[in-house]
């Protein structure tokens, strides 16, 4: 009895740890085979890059405008209007948009849209034994499939951060206009508070989010098993793990950035 209880508690924990370890190994293999010649993954990289771009631009546009208008826009504007200080909304958007929500909304959309598509694609190939066939032909699946997806998703996520910033701030502009205030003060406080550290932090964070999403989704796709149900379950698990990984990393990164760069906290 006691042994079954401990087994029920420890087996899932052990499985999860093993999975994390496998993902780390896959990350290492991917990095090594990305820098080691021959660089045969160029075409696939371009293809995956455009694929992610095509799939994500529309959901990301709607998501960032909606998030920017609702959460930081309306709520903060409501609060600031009480004090007659709506011009401070621009300064608040530096914190809200650049530091927080542009990176994580980008990560959510990329994981949910491009990540799931990658897992579904690789999972289907695994189920149809195409990956085994590749290995028989002497083609390394990590080099030919994982590396281009890893690089493409990293770069796309980083670049989409800028896109999400622009549209997130557009949401803030709409919130300012809804309150009938002029835009000049919004931009003035925005640019006086924005710092290069903030932008770099945001960009770096988002690129690393892309790396997490790519590794998790590729790993889950390449280890799918059990027919049609297996691919669906792999996609399901990939999204859940990617979300948890992204948010856990987000907390650690933001914490480190804020604690080590006190100068970016000063309100100007």
């Amino acid at each position: 009895m006691a042994s079954t209880i401990t087994a029920r508690i420890f087996d899932p924990a052990k499985g999860a740890l093993e999975e994390v370890g496998d993902m780390m190994i896959l990350t290492g293999k991917t990095l090594v085979s990305a820098v080691r010649p021959p660089y045969s993954y160029g075409d696939e990289f371009v293809h995956q890059f455009l694929f992610a771009l095509r799939l994500c631009w529309f959901p990301l546009l709607i998501s960032t405008v909606a998030f920017g208008f609702g959460a930081p826009g309306l709520q903060a504007a409501n609060f600031l209007v009480l004090f007659g200080a709506l011009d401070r909304l621009g300064g608040f958007f530096v914190l809200a948009s650049i530091r927080e929500f542009a990176p994580f909304v980008t990560a959510i959309v990329l994981a949910g849209v491009a990540g799931t598509a990658i897992t579904a694609d690789l999972g289907a190939r695994k189920i149809r034994e195409e990956l085994d066939a590749l290995q028989v032909l002497g083609v390394d699946p990590v080099k030919s499939l994982v590396v281009p997806r890893f690089l493409a998703l990293m770069i796309v996520t980083g670049l989409f951060d800028v896109y999400a910033l622009l549209f997130g701030i557009f949401g803030g502009i709409v919130a300012t206009l809804v309150n009938g205030a002029p835009l000049g003060p919004f931009w003035a406080t925005f640019f006086s508070n924005a710092s290069v550290t903030d932008l770099w932090g945001s960009f770096l964070k988002c690129t690393l989010f892309g790396a997490i999403i790519a590794v998790v989704c590729c790993y889950k796709g390449m280890t799918a098993k059990g027919g049609a149900e297996g691919v669906g379950r792999a996609v399901n698990q990939a999204v859940v793990i990617a979300f948890l990984g992204v948010f856990a990393f987000n907390y650690v990164f933001t914490q480190t950035l804020l604690a080590t760069n006190p100068e970016m906290l000063v309100i100007k």
């Binding site: 799931t116 999972g123 049609a228 669906g232």
Partner: peptide
């Protein structure tokens, strides 16, 4: 099998 994966991705 491919259809299930694609449908899952689209729903997301």
């Amino acid at each position: 099998p491919v259809g299930v994966g694609t449908a899952t991705a689209k729903s997301m």
